[in-house]
Structure formats: structure tokens, C-alpha cells
């Protein structure tokens, strides 16, 4: 565990907390894509199949449980909570899951570390995580007024990915035989998807103006 990895995980955790804060305290999910949240739930469900078989550390298991629990409860809140679900605008959140899930599944069948059920599911989760933010980014573009919590949520998710890249660079130089092409390439793609968002996020911050993405 290095400082970049820890900072990345904490940023990821912070993003989840920001979203839960919005849902629990403000009782709103306005501007949040249910499609993206469902994809994340699928990402964690398929990636953490090893939760009961491979023990890495207490930290690792705890974080897995947090990400699994929070992602499924967020989906439940947006879909089923009496008040929260009212703020969900289905007509704006139109991205199709299948366009992302099917290509990722096919890619996972072709490119994986080992052709076993668990490894194919793991590779699938890595590919799917890389693109799972797309419905959220599309929704942001359509939203005239992006509220602060939504902007911060997406920013923290992007920051988490950027910190993971620093973690890989650090590990590459400090550990022997640390080479993981699947996570590196997917992680790089995932981080690049945020580039445009980051640009407008910093612009709005610098000029002290409300965040708005050009259509």
C-alpha cells in the first residue's frame, strides 16, 4: 500500500459519501444517472467474486464490502425510495446499458489473465468500470444547472482514477514483476474520459462560476 493507492481509495470513498450525503440528507438524486449507478453495482458484484475466497487484508475486505453495499443501496434509493426516486428524471437518463455491457463482456472473453469464470468476470468488471461513467457524463451535458454535490461527486471519481495511475507508476518502479496491462490500459481510458469534465470543472472553479458543460 503506497500513498497514491491510499489517497485513490479514500477519494473513491469520499465520492460515495458525497453521493450518499446528497441522497440521505437532501433526499435528492437530481442530476445523478441511475444507469451509471447500476453499472457500478454490476462492476463491484462481478469484481469482488473473490471476496470470500481470496483474503488479502482486513482493509481490502472492508473496502469491498463498503463499495458493494453502497453501490446497491444507492441503486435501491434511486429506484425505490419514496422521496428520492421523485427527483430522478428518467427522460434525461437515456443511455442504454447494453451498449456498454455487451462489448465489455465480449472483450473480457477475449482478453483476460486466465480463461476461468472468475478471471473473465474480473476482466469484465475492469472494462465496464472504465466506461460506466459515460451515462453520467451524458446526463451532465444535458443538465442546465449542475449542483455542487453532483459536480464534486464526478470530480472525486475522476480524481480517484488519476491517483490510481500514480499508484501503478509507483508500484512499477518499486515492485518486481508488477505488470498489469488490463488494468493499466482500462484505467488510462477511464481517466481520459474525465479530461473534458476536469477542464470545465477547473474553469468554473477558477472563475467562480456555476459548472456547466457545453452541449
Amino acid at each position: 500500500m503506497n500513498i497514491f493507492r491510499l489517497a485513490g481509495d479514500m477519494t473513491h470513498l469520499a465520492s460515495v459519501l458525497v453521493l450518499l450525503l446528497k441522497i440521505h440528507t437532501i433526499k435528492s438524486c437530481a442530476g445523478i444517472s441511475l444507469k451509471t449507478q447500476e453499472l457500478y453495482a454490476l462492476v463491484f458484484a462481478t469484481r469482488y467474486l473473490d471476496i470470500f475466497t481470496d483474503f488479502i487484508s482486513l482493509y481490502n475486505t472492508t473496502m469491498k464490502l463498503i463499495f458493494l453495499g453502497s453501490s446497491f443501496s444507492i441503486v435501491w434509493y434511486i429506484r425505490n425510495h419514496k422521496i428520492v426516486s421523485r427527483s430522478y428524471d428518467k427522460s434525461q437518463d437515456t443511455f442504454r446499458h447494453y451498449f456498454l455491457i455487451i462489448p465489455c463482456l465480449l472483450l473480457a472473453l477475449l482478453v483476460n489473465e486466465k480463461f476461468t469464470f472468475k478471471e473473465v468476470m474480473w476482466a469484465f468488471s475492469i472494462y465496464l468500470e472504465a466506461v460506466a461513467i459515460l451515462p453520467q457524463l451524458v446526463l451532465l451535458q444535458r443538465t442546465r444547472n449542475i449542483d455542487n454535490l453532483t459536480g464534486q461527486y464526478v470530480f472525486l471519481l475522476g480524481a480517484y482514477r488519476a491517483l490510481y495511475i500514480l499508484n501503478w507508476i509507483y508500484r512499477y518502479f518499486t515492485e518486481t514483476h508488477y505488470v498489469h496491462w488490463i488494468t493499466w490500459v482500462s484505467g488510462l481510458v477511464q481517466t481520459l474520459l474525465y479530461a473534458d469534465f476536469f477542464y470545465y470543472y477547473f474553469e468554473s472553479w477558477k472563475n467562480n462560476k456555476k459548472l456547466q458543460l457545453p452541449a
Binding site: 493507492r5 481509495d9 473513491h12 469484481r47 473473490d50 481470496d54 488479502i56 481490502n60 473496502m63 469491498k64 463499495f67 474480473w122 490510481y164 499508484n167 515492485e175 514483476h177 508488477y178 488494468t183
Partner: peptide, 10 residues
């Protein structure tokens, strides 16, 4: 420490 064959990242 590395755990060979295990995915130790989240």
C-alpha cells in the same frame, strides 16, 4: 508484499 495471482487492488 505481492500476492501472486490475486487482485490486491480495489
Amino acid at each position: 508484499g505481492e500476492l501472486v495471482g490475486m487482485h490486491d487492488e480495489l
